[in-house]
Design a protein around this nucleic acid. Structure first.
Lengths: 139, 139
DNA sequence: ATCGGTGCAAACAATTTGCATTAGA
DNA sequence: TCTAATGCAAATTGTTTGCACCGAT
């Protein structure tokens, strides 16, 4: 979280209140957050943060590879701090949580596409929608 | 394409001009099409088709499992006639084409998530962004 | 003859942008 | 100080909806 602020500075960007607020919200988040929710939470830390600034900050973080957006199928984007490229998402349609998962699926896929089909994979968007273990047990 | 029209009838829906037009466009499409493009093409067949009807028809086809939407990362949805559940998409960021692909990746993933993590996968959204073979050769 | 489906235009939701002002370096 | 970044409000984009009329069954 603080190192991320550092990264912004190093990249030549100013460390402003809205940017600190957004970083802080993302760092503390235990979930994937849509922009308006980030805005709400950031406003607690730092009043007067504007939603437009939240969007601008998120776009910047994305560009720097510090955060990224996940699409779950409803219209909006959900944000989180960046993590390993080969991590994918398990979206429980029951409790609406999103879990991370990594395994050999994505690396294998990359390798296969490259070797067998000449397709150079740059990024892989993988979201599995289903019902998580807890929800299956609970009903 | 004609069998699809039949499916609509069987499901109790009326076979109207806009619906025929949309089905026809999707059936002839050699690419994934956004709603506004479908609208343009449909208007060639059948003038006066309204964009709203295109959306309504697409929603209906989706509900019946006859067509579905792919998200490529820009804001909009791209539509195609339905195909095998385990087929995924290769999106070339250079020439912007979308190719289909199926292999054991998705079935394996489903199986693994179920067995090892108790996660019951319902649908898998997998889009690989990268550069296709032709584009790699051509530059 | 019905009532499901359409066209049209207005409503929407998420995100983006123009511009005068503010504040980080 | 000087220019990047902000707040605000208006604009855009993709999609949805209310309603009076129309046409497939």
């Amino acid at each position: 979280m603080d190192s991320l602020a550092e990264r912004l500075r190093e990249a030549g960007y100013r460390l402003t209140a809205p940017r600190r607020a957004v970083l802080s919200v993302l760092a503390e988040a235990h979930a994937h957050l849509p922009a308006d929710r980030i805005h709400e939470l950031a406003a607690a830390h730092t009043p007067e943060v504007n939603l437009a600034s939240v969007y601008r900050t998120l776009a910047l973080l994305d560009e720097l590879g510090l955060a990224h957006e996940v699409r779950l199928g409803d219209g909006r984007g959900y944000w989180e701090l960046a993590h390993d490229e080969d991590t994918y998402h398990l979206h429980c349609v029951r409790c609406r949580t999103v879990a991370h998962h990594s395994g050999d699926t994505v690396p294998r896929l990359r390798a296969h596409l490259g070797e067998a089909h000449g397709f150079a994979a740059e990024s892989v968007d993988l979201v599995v929608h289903g019902v998580c273990e807890r929800c299956r047990a609970g009903s």
